[in-house]
Amino acid sequence: MTAPIRIAVVGLGKIARDQHLPAIAATSNFDLVATVSRQGDGVDGVPHFRDIEQLAASGTVVDAVALCTPPQVRRSIAQFAIAQGWHVFLEKPPGATLAEVIALRDAAAAAGVSLFASWHSRYADGVEPARDWLAGRTIHRATITWREDVRVWHPGQDWIWEPGGFGVFDPGINALSIATRILPHPFFVETAELDVPENRAAPIAARVAFRDTAGAPIAMDLDFRQEGPQSWDIVVETDAGTLTLAQGGGVLSIDGGTAPAADTDLHGEYPGLYRRFAAIVRAGVSDVDVSPLRLVGDIYLRARHHVVDPFHE
């Protein structure tokens, strides 16, 4: 496929309007041919539908869909899209459970369509240079600090507090998507503590101790209650110095100094994601890495749960 890929965006919440629609508009790889959302309006000049079944029945020619819905409802929509022969872009996290993502991967393979589990933070400017620098280094320890104000970044998004909504692991899985990309050894959960508001089903904060297969400890601190300056930082201490990825992977430094240059082809998270999606569609392959989601599942298996004060918007 060399012509623009005809894509529909399903779910027109904040992430779709802030990131997906501008990234699609800025590339020649895709043409936006439809939007789908049960709430609100679509995009001027583009056909809009209330559900994906209505889109399919309309006769609109679609090659691919980008699913920006909450994770709890994404599997059935993706399954329907795969059955139409459409390629599927899954916003992160790719599903509410690991099993359903694996089922979608297998269904896409059987149907001969591409499935993309998109980990947008891996496309931040500092991630690939960090991965290159850490390759072959001895890791002494790593610290992940992801603390943000949920009222700023997820206003009115009640789904995030429901089962399958991930709570603080909605941003926390971004950190894990970076860590699983840049660290040279696999790592696993040793202990975890989850703080769950008494009126919610998902955690508002978490502290997790990992260890990699070479023995290095990795500590993660997540909190949705951060006010003032926000923190999205990964610090890795090695035998050759300390690497710091700040601002969600966007700023890289080594021992506080100048970092290796970023690959300009990866500039911008969502433009990078859509370049990758176009590439796998045209190559006829899928890209479904479940390692960040698997770690979140393992955290829940190992965690102690603590009831904390109720959370109100």
Rank of each mutant, 00 (worst) to 15 (best):
I102S: 01
T238Q: 05
F116K: 01
P310T: 12
F169K: 01
S231C: 13
A240P: 08
G284E: 12
V281L: 10
G268S: 11
Q84K: 12
A78L: 03
E237L: 05
D132G: 10
A278N: 09
N29S: 15
S291F: 02
V46E: 07
T138S: 14
D63G: 11
G172P: 01
P94E: 15
I173G: 07
E237F: 03
D31F: 01
G256N: 09
A201V: 07
Y270T: 02
L243Y: 09
R200L: 13
S231Y: 13
L176I: 06
D31A: 11
G257P: 13
D309W: 08
A124E: 12
Q226N: 00
T213K: 05
P155T: 06
L293K: 08
F80H: 15
L98T: 14
L295N: 01
N199R: 00
T191A: 00
V127L: 04
N174I: 07
V88D: 03
T244H: 14
A214I: 01
H48V: 01
S37P: 00
L90Q: 09
H140F: 00
E227Q: 12
S37Q: 02
A96W: 06
H305G: 07
W86M: 02
V46H: 06
Q157T: 10
T264N: 09
P22S: 09
P260H: 13
L295A: 02
R147S: 11
E148C: 06
G268K: 05
Y300V: 03
T238S: 08
A81F: 08
A209F: 00
I77E: 10
D298C: 01
R207Q: 11
H267W: 09
G228E: 02
A81L: 12
D63V: 08
G165Y: 06
T143L: 09
G272Q: 14
E198N: 10
A107V: 09
L243M: 15
W86I: 06
V62D: 08
D289F: 03
L194K: 09
R74P: 03
Q230T: 01
R225D: 00
V46W: 09
P184E: 11
V168C: 12
D125S: 15
S253E: 15
L12I: 10
E237Q: 06
L273A: 14
P271V: 00
A130D: 10
S253L: 06
D63S: 11
A25W: 10
K14E: 11
V168F: 03
T258G: 10
T143A: 13
F80E: 14
A209I: 04
L67H: 13
T238R: 00
L243F: 12
S291T: 13
I299F: 06
G257T: 12
D212Q: 02
V36E: 07
P203N: 13
A96P: 01
L115R: 04
P155C: 03
V43R: 04
R17Y: 08
G156K: 02
